[in-house]
Design a protein around this nucleic acid. Structure first.
Lengths: 198, 198
DNA sequence: ACTCTATCTTGAACCACGTTCAAAATACCG
DNA sequence: CGGTATTTTGAACGTGGTTCAAGATAGAGT
């Protein structure tokens, strides 16, 4: 039984990430407590630090799952929409982004919270997941601006993603924006339609 | 000497906010420590809680200053630009926003960090400051879309602000965006010019 | 099967931090 | 100047992430 240790460790890691996902989804990443996690996973407090470097590493593992789900949601929103005009596809993806953020607010927020906490480099899979999102946006943008150079197109893709992200981010902050969620779709459509208007 | 106590208290408050501003600007709001602050202000640890409810209240006081500075910077950017076309004025304001964020990254970040921490309502002055920013944007937007209803215009104003905010936010996160600061202006201009194109 | 060694697991302990509070100092009033 | 109210103080409390030495366990060699 050479892999027994490995298997136990992997099982513990999975239990910890499961528990962390549930807690982050319910209470936000800032409310994650090592002692709660140990209790949920049925392990000792110190065992967490055998499986992961620190709590942040667990949050990053949860972020990995979240990013996969987000990517799938965005991709699915345009899966059968090849025939739609590019602006329409951008709006479909943005709405998918919005509804993912609404349905998983705390998990989604954790994705962009690595900012102020950690200093170290962002893991590769994180950047790759982001590039995956950008790739979806790049197709309709390329159709909208056929004459645009590659570099400028890349900037436009990032600019559009950031714009939609900003609208969703502030829009979900009801206390600040004062805008009901239904109106967020309207704002996204306003901006994207103006941009895509030929 | 009836006002002596008041004056001392006010002086302490000011010293605390000064010290907090310096520390937040240098290390970020998350690195603010009550003990450091007490040392900087030359008061006892507990005295902080005589002057303010808690550390968050000090951060909010700093946010008040930051918001005033941000509002002034944005206003100044279009002060002598009445003759410019609306799109140009939107770009001027956005660039002012960007450069304020670049020059005061940590202070600017703190403005939008009240999200996950506190639950209570946002103070009135905060919402008013935000409305002040929106009012600046509303003028050029009104000129760009003369036929638009008041409600729709309001949404467009918020949508544009959120878009620029998103571009600046992710743009300054070099680790994520991989876009050099000079390119952020380009992204803003790309989006705003597309939207304002008549 | 039985060591023996390396590894894992455990939870008490450590440290940092926000916040509180009773005592000491100070201010204000008669 | 004496007495009361307020403020200031910093030690102490509670919480929470992380560590570590001791005990438990697994796998290899015989």
């Amino acid at each position: 039984m050479a892999g027994k240790v490995e298997a136990r460790k992997a099982a513990l890691r999975e239990k910890l990430v499961d528990a962390a996902e549930i807690r982050i989804a319910r209470d936000g990443a800032g409310a994650l407590r090592a002692r709660d996690l140990a209790q949920d996973a049925g392990c000792a407090l110190g065992a967490i630090y055998n499986a992961f470097d620190d709590l942040n590493a667990i949050i990053m593992a949860v972020n990995g799952r979240t990013f996969r789900g987000l990517g799938a949601a965005v991709r699915a929103s345009v899966e059968d929409a090849d025939a739609e005009p590019p602006t329409r596809r951008l709006i479909l993806m943005s709405n998918a982004y919005l509804h993912f953020a609404i349905a998983n607010t705390n998990l989604w927020r954790a994705l962009f919270d690595l900012q102020m906490t950690a200093e170290g480099p962002v893991p590769d899979w994180y950047l790759e997941a982001l590039e995956g999102l950008f790739a979806n946006i790049a197709r309709p943008v390329g159709e909208l601006f056929p004459g645009m150079g590659a570099e400028e197109t890349g900037l436009m893709v990032r600019a559009l993603f950031s714009s939609v992200h900003g609208i969703v981010l502030l829009g979900l902050e009801r206390r600040i924006s004062g805008v009901p969620p239904e109106q967020i779709e309207t704002m996204i459509a306003q901006v994207l339609r103006q941009i895509g208007r030929s």
